[in-house]
């Protein structure tokens, strides 16, 4: 079955105050629910990414910080198995990131390896 990479993009514009512990507990439960609902479909739960980073530019120039050209910054990723983009999108729609208003980029693995 084809695999898809879900790339979580947090908005860099609506950086409100930190989420409260109560909101975080709610969020934790949402992730638990999502993983349980799609148990066989989620190949790799992935990880979160810190907001720090480096960019190695051509010519060996190293810049601080992740690439922030867009209004969103990559905050994490997961890998799911699905029969089609449509199915992958359905799984992504129910992901907590989508529910709280984040964007998710969905890319099919080429399967070269």
């Amino acid at each position: 079955m084809p695999k898809y990479l879900l790339i979580y993009r947090d908005s860099t514009e609506s950086q409100q105050s930190q989420p409260s512990p109560e909101e975080m507990q709610g969020f934790l439960k949402m992730w638990d629910g999502w993983f349980k609902q799609f148990e066989g479909k989620i190949v790799d739960m992935g990880d979160g990414l810190l907001p720090t980073g480096r960019v190695l530019q051509p010519g060996g120039v190293v810049a601080d910080g992740p690439y922030v050209e867009a209004k969103e910054m990559i905050g994490g990723f997961s890998v799911v198995a699905a029969n089609s983009y449509e199915e992958a999108v359905e799984i992504a729609k129910l992901c907590p990131i989508a529910i709280i208003g984040g964007a998710i980029e969905i890319r099919e693995f080429a399967g070269y390896v």
């Binding site: 409260s20 512990p21 109560e22 909101e23 975080m24 507990q25 709610g26 969020f27 934790l28 439960k29 949402m30 638990d32 629910g33 349980k36 609902q37 729609k93 529910i99 709280i100 208003g101």
Partner: peptide
């Protein structure tokens, strides 16, 4: 408590999951 929950009907089913998997007691994080 998420602000969007009140506006977004899609979230309603989530409450079911949230409640059935509640391993942590209410307000644990707080």
């Amino acid at each position: 408590h998420h602000r969007r929950c009140h506006r977004n009907p899609r979230v309603c089913w989530l409450r079911l999951i949230v409640d059935s998997t509640s391993q942590l007691v209410e307000h644990f994080f707080r």
